[in-house]
Write a protein that binds this DNA or RNA. Structure first.
Length: 127
DNA sequence: CGCTTGACCGGAA
DNA sequence: ATTCCGGCCAAGC
């Protein structure tokens, strides 16, 4: 299943990491969500960007720096993508108070609303 | 140099 | 709910 890469992968990944670092503890973001928050690199048409950017975000997370909370990025179905280390990701999230139901998270409760829209911690609302 | 293999997503069967 | 499909690049072996 072939797919293209960003014109400058390194530069794109850094934008992803910077965004990911802003995800509050106890909340999550999806690959596609982060991709939408980043503008399409110059030379990439919107259609192509929409089709592949989520994978680019995934690639970025696969190579993320130590200070990036990679565990807070999950797929659009509210599940943890299959791969070695997936179990660890779930543990880290549960330690932050994220509850899993049948291997999935309720995005309505935990999804990050983006920078600036700093949400009231979902957990507080549940207490 | 030629395979193989990706931390995805939305829409269609 | 579940499976299948298109998208068509690069690093690593």
């Amino acid at each position: 299943m072939p797919y293209p890469s960003p014109p400058d992968p390194q530069a794109y990944y850094e934008q992803v990491w910077q965004l990911a670092r802003q995800i509050p503890q106890g909340t999550v973001a999806t690959y596609g969500q982060l991709a939408q928050m980043i503008p399409a690199p110059e030379g990439v048409d919107l259609e192509e960007y929409q089709a592949f950017s989520p994978r680019w975000v995934g690639s970025a997370m696969a190579a993320c720096a130590a200070d990036v909370p990679w565990q807070r990025v999950i797929n659009s179905q509210g599940k943890i993508s299959q791969r070695p280390g997936a179990e660890k990701q779930r543990q880290l999230l549960e330690a932050e108070g994220v509850v899993f139901v049948k291997d999935k998270i309720d995005l309505k409760l935990y999804q990050w609303h983006g920078p600036g829209a700093e949400d009231t911690p979902r957990q507080a609302r549940l207490l």
